[in-house]
């Protein structure tokens, strides 16, 4: 797992040269920075397999040997002699990935290309990457998808602002990533182009102490502080909460919570009462937006501004405390148990 900007990947895949430092590579490197690079729309599927293979560094003999396998993997047998400009985007991507997946480099660099295709094809791709890794070759997988990293990787490194901050097992790496302050702290205090700034955002417990580790089923609130350089009327604030794999879990909206569009001037504090936290233990992030009624403009977008990790609450004598793998959210508010006893009619 790596958080790197594209520049480092470009260096590793030799697209650009380093200005200082040294990279040691043992074996052929192939990168899937973008699948389908070098496809020509006018050429047929068959022709593109050869062309793309050659561009990625395969020899003609190698491509011929794997040709049938590639075609079968991409499931495009019937359209081999059709120009790829007539392919559906799904077919196009499948073919492109198939060529890249069958190149047998010693080191394969994969950069979140799995976001393509349908779920079935994605699983096929994950399987292929596992095969590659099990065949004794190296896969360098770059992703923010913690679930995929847990599933695919043995070891992980994490980079932050160009420095190595973690190196170890994938499992520990995922934890480190979630715990580290990967939030976009710069967003706090930054003035948007409409003169609005989010000056503070914090999750607070019952005693109004800010925390990054709220405890499941305890009462919390979210406090936001906004500043406007010039007054703005009819404002509404929306908070979006995402889990660690980027699923939108919930949204908070001032209007829905009963605050009619308000006027923003100078410093304003907004407090959402979250009640008892019903999100299951796990890592979440928040993004904060400011809109005005009947106006499509986003006046403020502070993305990933706050990250928090819900901690399991210790329930007395519990056998099954709610954990992150139990889902995202608690639906039950409580539970009741009643015994129905057979009614005994006594005759006296």
């Amino acid at each position: 797992m790596v958080r790197v900007n594209r520049q480092l990947l470009k260096l590793l895949s030799r697209i650009t040269e380093p200005t200082s430092g040294r990279i040691g590579l043992r074996g052929r490197v192939a990168s899937l920075l973008e699948v389908g690079t070098g496809f020509h729309p006018e050429l047929t599927g068959r022709e593109n397999i050869f062309l793309n293979g050659a561009i990625l560094g395969m020899s003609k003999a190698e491509i011929q040997r794997k040709f049938d396998e590639i075609v079968a993997f991409a499931e495009v047998e019937r359209f081999l002699d059709t120009p790829v400009k007539r392919y559906s985007s799904g077919m196009y991507v499948r073919l492109a990935f198939a060529v890249a997946a069958h190149l047998e480099p010693e080191i394969l660099i994969v950069d979140e290309v799995l976001a393509v295709g349908d779920a079935q094809f994605q699983n096929k791709c994950l399987g292929k990457m596992k095969d590659v890794a099990q065949g004794g070759r190296t896969v360098l997988f770059v992703s923010h998808n913690m679930a995929a990293i847990r599933q695919l990787c043995d070891s992980a490194i994490m980079l932050q602002r160009g420095e190595l901050v973690f190196s170890g097992s994938a499992e520990a790496g995922v934890k480190h990533y979630l715990n580290s302050a990967t939030t976009n702290q710069d967003a706090i205090g930054t003035v948007s182009s409409y003169g609005i700034a989010l000056t503070d955002a914090a999750l607070e417990d019952l005693d109004r102490c800010p925390t990054r580790s709220p405890i499941f089923d305890r009462e919390h609130s979210l406090r936001l502080q906004l500043h406007a350089h010039s007054p703005l009327s009819d404002c509404a604030v929306v908070v979006r909460i995402y889990d660690d794999i980027g699923t939108l879990v919930s949204s908070l909206c001032t209007v829905e919570e009963g605050i009619t569009p308000f006027a923003l001037k100078d410093e304003v504090e907004i407090r959402f009462d979250l009640g008892r936290i019903s999100l299951f233990p796990g890592s979440y992030r928040m993004s904060i937006f400011l809109y005005r009624s009947n106006d499509p403009i986003t006046y403020l977008a502070a993305e990933d501004v706050l990250q928090f990790e819900v901690q399991p609450s210790i329930i007395q004598d519990s056998m099954w405390a709610y954990r992150s793998d139990h889902g995202i959210m608690r639906l039950a508010q409580g539970c009741e148990l009643r015994y129905y006893q057979p009614s005994v009619v006594t005759r006296g």
């Binding site: 380093p18 430092g21 040691g24 590579l25 043992r26 074996g27």
Partner: peptide, 11 residues
Amino acid sequence: FPQFLSIESGR
């Protein structure tokens, strides 16, 4: 066979 390659500035 894997071949060692070193990339340095001014390769």
